[in-house]
Amino acid sequence: MPPEPDHRLFFLLQRAAHTLRLTADRRCLAAAGVTTAQLGALFAVRDQRGLTQQELARTLGLRQSAVTPLVARLTAAGLVARRAHPHDHRAVVLELTDAGAAAVRAAAPEIDRFNAEMRSLLGDDGFAGTAAALHKLAHWRPLPDR
Rank of each mutant, 00 (worst) to 15 (best):
G126N: 06
P142D: 14
D112G: 02
T36M: 10
R82Y: 06
T75D: 12
A17C: 07
A102N: 02
L42H: 06
A31I: 03
Q54L: 05
V34N: 05
L121W: 14
L13Y: 11
H7C: 04
D25M: 10
R105S: 03
L22T: 04
R105L: 03
A37Y: 09
Q14Y: 06
P5G: 12
L42R: 04
V34I: 09
A128W: 05
V45G: 01
R49W: 11
T52M: 01
V93I: 13
R73P: 01
H135G: 12
D6I: 10
V71N: 00
V34Q: 00
R119T: 09
G100F: 14
K136S: 06
A30P: 13
R46G: 01
L29P: 02
A103I: 01
R21D: 10
T36H: 03
G50T: 09
K136R: 12
L12I: 03
A77E: 10
G61T: 09
L62P: 04
L39M: 12
H7A: 03
D6Y: 12
A132L: 15
T23K: 15
R8Q: 13
L51Q: 01
A132K: 15
S65W: 07
P69T: 01
E95N: 11
C28W: 08
D112N: 07
N115Q: 14
L94C: 02
D125R: 14
R83L: 05
H85I: 00
Q54C: 00
A138N: 04
T23H: 13
Q38I: 00
A101I: 14
S65G: 05
R26C: 02
A76M: 05
P5S: 11
G50Q: 13
S120D: 12
L60Q: 07
L79E: 06
V45W: 12
L79Q: 04
A102Y: 03
A72N: 09
H85A: 01
V92N: 06
A116K: 06
H89K: 08
G33M: 12
L22G: 13
R58W: 07
A91Y: 02
L13F: 08
V34Y: 05
H89A: 02
A132T: 15
H18L: 14
G61P: 10
R90S: 01
T52R: 06
H7V: 11
P109T: 09
R113Q: 08
H7T: 13
Q38W: 03
V92Q: 10
S65I: 12
T75K: 10
R90T: 04
G100A: 03
L60K: 08
V67S: 01
D25Q: 10
H135D: 15
A24T: 11
A77M: 09
L29R: 15
D125A: 13
D25L: 13
S120I: 02
